[in-house]
């Protein structure tokens, strides 16, 4: 099920890569901020296990909105601070990557030092429940009980798994249709195919790039909430390893390819599961990285081939 989360998360990499041909290194922190937004939302509304089903679902939806908004906002901020100036100056990709690494450090450390930051702003008191133990794992309270739905011969399907998978698929479907059918989506595809021609045809490139970051951020926010439902804890530095995995998923499916990202995420999730069955769960991360290296060597364009531009309306 974690594969679906990877898939959603990977969209941000795929979209930005498709349009800018750059790896958005700071995308992992966009995800991390989303996961905290989900936690804070639960804290703010006083969520606890064993509420009624209706308010619990309402809370989860509120957390979804909060996570998506925060992630989307952070993604726009990253675009503004780390990328725009460099793009206007036509800097080499390496500089943009370093700028993004810098942004990623800042975002992750701001979260890790949030108790200090709140202290500077004289908000330590009112924000106490949100900034507690800033460098440790923070628990997510899921108001919805994780019940067993069906049991298929010893293999139980639980409600959380269903929620994660269905939500991820719905998100994917919505995004896929948006990019294929809407006017803005056409702009995104045009810019990724040929930025100059798109600009000549009257596509506002700046707007499209912002939009790409925004969508990537929104999806990362959704992925973050699903991740919290699935895993339950977050920390200021979780972004890094998850980011690499999401990127692996994006490359696996063919970077720049939206459907590929989902497929890549699911394949990676399965590979991790089987990998930990075969070699023990400690080797799970090694399996993911090894898979990435192998894919890059033998099929650098991924399973479905790259390019966002080739998707037909």
């Amino acid at each position: 099920m974690v594969g679906a989360v990877y898939g959603l998360f990977a969209l941000g990499y795929t979209l930005v890569y498709g349009v800018l041909r750059l790896i958005n290194f700071a995308h992992s922190e966009v995800f991390m901020w989303g996961s905290f937004a989900a936690v804070w939302c639960m804290t703010a509304f006083g969520a606890r296990a064993g509420m009624g089903v209706v308010p619990a679902i309402g809370l989860l939806l509120a957390a979804l909105v909060a996570a998506m908004l925060v992630s989307g906002g952070v993604a726009l901020l990253v675009e503004r601070v780390a990328y725009r100036r460099l793009r206007e100056k036509n800097s080499p990709p390496l500089v943009a990557l370093i700028s993004a690494i810098g942004a990623s450090f800042v975002l992750s450390e701001l979260m890790g030092l949030r108790d200090r930051v709140a202290g500077w702003l004289n908000l330590s008191g009112p924000l106490a429940p949100y900034i507690d133990r800033a460098r440790e794992y923070t628990q997510f309270t899921n108001p919805l009980a994780n019940v067993e739905i069906v049991n298929l011969g010893g293999f139980s399907v639980r409600s959380n798994q269903v929620i994660v998978l269905v939500a991820a698929l719905l998100m994917m479907l919505a995004l896929d249709q948006f990019v294929r059918r809407s006017r803005l989506g056409r702009g995104v595809r045009a810019v990724s195919q040929d930025p100059e021609a798109a600009a000549l045809m009257g596509v506002n490139q700046k707007r499209v790039i912002q939009l790409t970051f925004l969508i990537g951020g929104l999806m990362a926010g959704a992925a973050a909430l699903l991740y919290m439902i699935h895993i339950g804890v977050t920390r200021f530095n979780i972004g890094f390893i998850l980011g690499i995995k999401a990127f692996t998923a994006a490359v696996l499916g063919g970077i720049g390819n939206i459907r590929g990202a989902l497929l890549g995420g699911l394949v990676l999730g399965l590979a991790e599961n089987y990998g930990s069955q075969l070699f023990g769960s400690a080797w799970k991360d090694v399996v993911a990285f090894a898979l990435l290296v192998v894919v890059l060597l033998f099929r650098p364009t991924g399973l479905l081939g790259e390019s966002l531009g080739k998707a037909r309306a």
């Binding site: 500089v95 370093i98 700028s99 810098g102 942004a103 450090f105 800042v106 975002l107």
Partner: peptide
Amino acid sequence: FGLLLLLLAN
């Protein structure tokens, strides 16, 4: 460091 990298790159 993050800030430094960001500023330097820009």
